[in-house]
Nucleic acid binder design. Sequence first.
DNA 1: GCCAACGTTGGC
DNA 2: GCCAACGTTGGC
Length: 160
Amino acid sequence: MPWLLKSEPDCFSILDLAKSPKRTTFWDGVRNYQARNFLRDSMKLGDRVLFYHSSCDPAGVAGTATIVREGYPDFTAWDKKSDHFDPKASESNPIWQMVDIQLEEAFTDLLPLPALRDVPTLKNMELLRKGSRLSVQPVTDAEFAAVLKLADKLGLRAKR
DNA sequence: GCCAACGTTGGC
DNA sequence: GCCAACGTTGGC
């Protein structure tokens, strides 16, 4: 199943991912139980990911990635120096999970959120639901394909 | 920077 | 177990 992962580009952008060793990173800092359950139970090796930039202007889809390691304990949770430190977590009780993702394709430019709202296929997409804040979201195959198709149409996919 | 929507906390 | 208060998210 495809997924959508949100990141604030000021914190970690798709360019940061592109510059990472092997264009791969661990997806740490998720501190929401519903999102945690997706990371732990549902994300599978090889699943594709829409990399979404949130809290920026405009917000939108920045590219795609794939899951290259399935859920494992998020060790930043018991690192006191981490921004994502959680006093309730420990090595023996990790609470939080993360996955590793590898960059697949960075769009040449952001696919802006308002453009997604114009696509009929995406009408029920979790991202577009009013009040939706989930930072790890399942995406249907049809939705994933529709986003890529729109990126094509807007000329945001340079390499082939 | 505003504020609506949501999740979490904690008193009862 | 309810629910008010609070903190956070994230589009605008």
